[in-house]
Design a protein around this nucleic acid. Structure first.
Lengths: 209, 209
DNA sequence: ATCCGAACTTGACACTGTAAAGATTTTATT
DNA sequence: AATAAAATCTTTACAGTGTCAAGTTCGGAT
């Protein structure tokens, strides 16, 4: 509910995206309404329509922003561990998991088709594409290092990314048996799964420093 | 919009579940409203409250029914290909994919946290648990046959199921690069991915007969 | 036969997304 | 600098939503 003195807000579009993300984090997808976002940004309930065609458009924007942030984290990891591809996969996968756990609402908004016709939002498509390319890059590095089998990198990327994504998604929805989560962290589970794919053993422990 | 002559419907609860499933298939998650379901079943808009505490409860019921059907399909496959574990994984995974593609709306309802507090619905929990057990059974058969590495079957099940689920979910949301889907069927992609995990090569082709 | 509780209807309320019309401010054009 | 145009924001309105409360109708137990 940021008040304001001028009639024009100045940066309403971004304010709405931010407000939406905050409501999302606080109340989840179900609690995200256009009117609430508007109130939160300190404008009338119809003001968002000056910047977004409809609710879906705002969702697309929030989602896109999420993908950009995720990509930022993963690219940072790829850089930090360049030359050590096995760390790249593990830490990228973990970053993905941490991203989901920090803000499940946003993760669901991004991946659970709250956005109905994603191909209609070029920015969204671009952001998701960039994300995929990042994964492909890491996979290629692993293939060169003999950590992953040779073969079409994009296809291999789907195999790896799909696995990580699937486990995280299932974990988020509480669909992973208690028997499994009982005495294992999500990180251990993910690395165990990755180890079924990789040719050399990955270490699940966090890197020192 | 099934009309009726008697004041009491007779089997409204199940009729509502069916109506909900049909609307879901036709219009997707976004088009599913309690009032529409009621109208479709030929009752007034508040009638559902005699059988379901709220919308979430109806969703839980539809979702649970979906899990039962899915379990039915997978158990049939496990039986049909008993003694051939490699076929069991491939066909079970494919059944999962087919189930998702036949009715994406229902699949999303089941797996994309449209249902918010799933643990509050014992039937739902039970159905999902049974589903998981089915996967564990197949995984164990594969381990005995030397198709999957030894190790905790539940954990291995998460690795395998997670991968299949992840790929299907991403495919459903259109998040798999065109480069990959261009000249490969979803079935090929899934089997390629499974082949990264298994110790013996799986065949992606459909079984004759 | 009658009473009771379950199943169902009607009416209401607050909240939602969205459109239209008006008010205010900035920007562009002359 | 004056005015026109465009963008931003407000107000009002409407249909659709989930849910509740109060009333109606019915089947079954006593």
């Amino acid at each position: 509910m940021t008040g304001r003195k001028t009639y024009h807000h100045g940066d309403l579009k971004n304010a709405l995206i931010r407000a939406g993300a905050e409501i999302l984090a606080a109340e989840g997808v179900g609690g995200l309404s256009l009117r609430k976002v508007a109130k939160w940004a300190g404008v009338s309930h119809a003001a968002p329509y000056a910047h977004f065609a409809d609710k879906q458009s705002l969702i697309a924007a929030i989602s896109t922003e999420g993908f950009r942030q995720l990509d930022g984290r993963i690219s940072a990891i790829a850089e930090r561990h360049s030359g050590e591809p096995s760390r790249q996969v593990v830490e990228a996968a973990w970053a993905y998991a941490a991203f989901a756990q920090e803000d499940p609402g946003r993760f669901r908004l991004m991946f659970s088709s709250v956005l109905e016709k994603e191909k209609e939002y070029p920015e969204f498509v671009e952001a998701t594409g960039q994300n995929f390319e990042r994964v492909v890059g890491i996979v290629e590095a692993c293939q060169r290092a003999g950590i992953l089998r040779p073969g079409p990198a994009e296809l291999m990327a789907v195999a790896v990314w799909g696995q990580v994504h699937g486990i995280i998604a299932l974990a988020l929805e509480g669909q992973i048996s208690h028997v499994v989560t009982k005495d294992r962290s999500l990180r251990e589970i993910i690395v165990f799964a990755l180890n079924q794919i990789t040719l050399t053993e990955l270490d699940f422990r966090f890197p020192r420093s």
